[in-house]
Amino acid sequence: MSKHQGPEPSGNPAEITNGDISKSQRKRAARAVLELARELVDLNDSRLERVPLDDAIRDAVRETRAIRSHVARKRQLQYLAKLLRRDDTDPITEALDDMRNEARRGVARHHRAEGWRDRLLRDGDAALSELLEQRPGMESQALRQCIRAATREAAAGKPPAAARRLFRLLLDLDTSEALPHSDPD
């Protein structure tokens, strides 16, 4: 016979206090809110400002950051989790998820630009013409100049300043509209 008595609580206080939820589910929900509190404390100030928090919770986060004693910090984290359990944590969780996705998108942009830079330096005009086919209207002259300069630098054994410039140019192009994926080797 299964001990499961209902849906998993989302961290919403109304669901945690519901009598139909098992003690284990309440503990899991409490641990999830405590982990959310830890995540809020670990955010830098600029990211913390982007999270929808009321002033009491924001102040508790700042107080927790200032505490250096392990035991006192743990106690303050429990207090912060208690404050979080009083409110709906879904908007906070969504804001943190958006920040994580934003970082993933940035990494993906970085990888696309790196892939095209490496491919353009390796294959030259063939890769450039393929990129221009996939992304019509792109300015090709600046790309050609960077590719030639980077090729000359590599042949002369100089530092890759032009390759970096090419990367930044590709990254800027990817920011306005995502570059197509470069084919792997």
Score class of each variant (00 low, 15 high):
M1S: 00
K3T: 05
H4V: 11
H4N: 07
Q5N: 10
P7R: 14
P7C: 11
E8Y: 07
P9E: 05
S10M: 04
S10L: 10
S10N: 13
A14D: 14
E15A: 09
E15H: 11
N18L: 13
G19N: 01
D20I: 03
D20G: 04
I21R: 14
S24D: 09
Q25H: 08
Q25D: 14
R26H: 07
R28S: 05
A29E: 08
A29G: 12
A30K: 05
R31I: 08
V33R: 05
V33N: 13
L34I: 01
L36K: 03
L36I: 03
E39V: 03
E39H: 12
L40H: 04
V41P: 00
V41K: 02
V41G: 01
V41E: 00
D45T: 12
R47H: 14
E49M: 07
L53I: 05
D59I: 06
D59T: 11
R62A: 11
E63A: 03
T64L: 03
R65Y: 09
I67V: 11
H70Q: 10
H70Y: 06
A72M: 02
A72G: 04
R73C: 08
R75D: 02
Q76E: 12
Q78F: 02
Y79Q: 10
L80Q: 09
A81C: 11
A81Y: 09
K82S: 12
K82Y: 07
L83V: 03
R86I: 02
D87T: 01
D88M: 04
T89P: 03
T89D: 00
D90N: 09
P91Q: 08
T93P: 00
A95H: 03
D97T: 11
D97V: 05
M99I: 02
R100C: 04
N101C: 00
N101K: 11
R104M: 13
G106T: 12
G106E: 15
G106N: 14
V107N: 13
A108K: 06
A108D: 06
H110C: 05
H110R: 14
H111K: 15
G115P: 08
G115C: 07
G115V: 10
R119W: 01
G124H: 01
G124L: 00
G124V: 02
D125T: 14
A127S: 15
L128N: 12
L128Y: 14
S129C: 00
E130F: 06
E130H: 14
L132D: 05
L132V: 11
E133C: 15
Q134I: 01
R135K: 14
R135Y: 13
P136F: 14
G137S: 13
E139P: 09
A142L: 10
L143P: 02
Q145K: 14
C146P: 00
R148I: 05
R148V: 07
A150K: 08
T151V: 04
A154L: 01
K158M: 09
K158H: 12
K158G: 00
P160L: 12
A163H: 05
R165G: 12
L166H: 07
F167C: 04
L169F: 05
L171S: 13
L171H: 15
D172K: 15
T175P: 05
S176H: 10
E177R: 10
A178K: 15
A178W: 06
L179W: 10
H181W: 13
S182N: 06
